[in-house]
């Protein structure tokens, strides 16, 4: 009888300790998430960019299509792929850009690759008519208190 009582008391004590440890762990966890979390874990959308989408090259974010590898080989040595992928030009515009880089930025002669590169860029990174001012887009609605 006496032994049972002691055991019960011991179990109750253990529970209390476990509960305290549990509560502490939750608090530490919340603090950790609040202060450490975002800095350690969050990858900004802009970095992920297109690289995680299907149809896009995982490393560079280029649209997957004929000629992409030639573009990567020739156009990402000096600058990042983003300098290409954020632009939109006609075939003439892309050619003028290549000529400018050859004249002033040490871009090499592209030979037969030039046409491959131009066709890829003109098809996949062509200008769109946005009018004189595009409507506001990608609005993230939130309740302002």
């Amino acid at each position: 009888m006496g032994e049972k009582k002691v055991t019960k008391k011991w179990i109750r004590k253990s529970y209390r300790v476990l509960i305290i440890i549990g509560v502490l762990a939750v608090i530490v966890g919340i603090i950790g998430l609040y202060f450490g979390g975002p800095n350690e874990e969050v990858i900004p959308n802009e970095i992920k960019n297109n690289k995680t989408k299907t149809g896009y090259d995982a490393r560079t974010g280029f649209i997957e299509d004929d000629g992409m590898q030639t573009v990567i080989n020739n156009c990402t040595t000096c600058h990042a792929a983003e300098l290409v992928t954020q632009n939109k030009m006609t075939k003439d515009g892309w050619l003028a850009t290549i000529r400018w880089m050859q004249e002033s930025q040490n871009l090499w002669e592209l030979g037969d690759n030039e046409e491959v590169i131009l066709n890829y860029l003109a098809k996949n990174y062509a200008p769109e008519d946005t009018g004189r001012r595009a409507p506001l887009k990608d609005i993230n609605w939130y309740v302002l208190e």
């Binding site: 975002p38 800095n39 900004p44 802009e46 970095i47 600058h79 990042a80 983003e82 954020q86």
Partner: peptide, 20 residues
Amino acid sequence: PDPFKLFNKDVDMTLLNSKP
């Protein structure tokens, strides 16, 4: 590296280009 850490920038900043 992660430019937001490297340059002490807020993660909500928009990265346009990583080189330059």
